[in-house]
């Protein structure tokens, strides 16, 4: 909280998101000693990104015409742009609305006055500006935020969530269906796949410390694919998860395939590959924390 003018200056631009990313950043308050926060409407009453800002964190997707303007304008000012959270990287949860009936609803609002005009869909920010670092997670944990601010070289993480989870994979416990929570009890210490949950931690990038799977909820992949799959099409990632289930369970492959395309996973599973941005090149793994 000391206002040392020599500290690097950073701003947080909130586009259309849920503010969860900002809340996580507030919790990572160690930056207070090392950085100066110059703009973040959630907590600071300033109304524009100041001219001498160095680092820009962008959260939320590009959902309306004001988002486009604010993003372009802010990115011009700064030296370095970091896309934080799934929304900024892929459009995030709002991307579940990328289908005809919902697009039509958005377009029907286009003639309204006073309010910013909605675009037909939520866009990732790199559809409009160059991004220097991607920080996936919904939201990224406070620890990941610190990693992004201080530089990826100072951050250590396992390559996949399973390595951070600590649950044991058993050879002789093979479910025949994806039973999920209907069965009523989650056993401690045993891999969630053995128990018939659809967990995609086996190919999701680590770094979150497996905060969902350790207390007993399957990983929904919010950190996106691990480096092994990140530059490939999302079908490669799906195939990989499918293989893990075929090796560890007796669940019919169609059942797994269908479940992998469910909304709660597709919020996240597309974020680095087939996101609906058209012909953009894959994001290089060196640029992803």
């Amino acid at each position: 909280m000391s206002l040392n003018p020599t500290l690097p200056r950073f701003a947080v631009l909130q586009l259309s998101g849920c503010a969860g990313c900002e809340v996580s950043l507030i919790n990572a308050s160690e930056w207070v000693e090392k950085y100066q926060l110059v703009y973040m409407p959630l907590v600071v009453s300033t109304h524009a990104v100041p001219e001498d800002t160095e680092i820009l964190l962008v959260s939320g997707g590009v959902r309306n015409d004001e988002d486009v303007w604010n993003l372009r304008h802010a990115a011009e000012i700064v030296d370095r742009v970091i896309a934080v959270g799934t929304c900024a990287i892929s459009g995030g949860v709002a991307n579940l609305g990328d289908r005809d009936d919902v697009r039509a609803m958005f377009m029907s609002q286009a003639s309204r006055h006073h309010v910013p005009h909605l675009l037909p869909k939520s866009h990732p920010i790199d559809a409009f500006v160059d991004v220097d670092l991607y920080l996936p997670g919904c939201p990224p944990t406070p620890e990941l935020f610190m990693g992004a601010l201080t530089g990826p070289e100072n951050f250590e993480a396992s390559s996949i969530v399973c390595q951070e989870c600590g649950r044991k994979k058993l050879k002789d416990m093979r479910p025949t269906h994806l039973v999920g929570f209907q069965q009523g009890e989650v056993l401690p210490d045993i891999c969630l796949i053995n128990q018939g949950y659809l967990c995609v931690g086996s190919s999701t990038r680590g770094g979150c410390r497996a905060i969902c799977t350790r207390p007993g909820h399957p990983c929904v992949g919010c950190r996106g694919p691990s480096n092994a799959y990140i530059e490939k099409e999302s079908s490669v990632w799906f195939d990989r998860v499918q293989k893990v289930f075929e090796n560890m369970t007796d669940i019919p492959p169609e059942e797994i395939r269908e479940a992998l395309h469910s909304p709660q996973l597709s919020m996240f599973l597309f974020q680095f590959t087939d996101y609906q941005g058209g012909d953009r090149p894959p994001r290089p793994k060196e640029k992803v924390l």
Binding site: G97, R99, P263
Partner: peptide, 28 residues
């Protein structure tokens, strides 16, 4: 001055997935 459209795009979602998706309405 913002909207993402949850009440529209949640239609068709498997009911059991709601508790994971709807917290994203708001991180606060």
């Amino acid at each position: 001055i913002e909207m993402r459209g949850f009440r529209y795009f949640m239609l068709g979602t498997p009911a059991e997935q709601m508790p994971v998706i709807v917290p994203r309405i708001c991180g606060v």
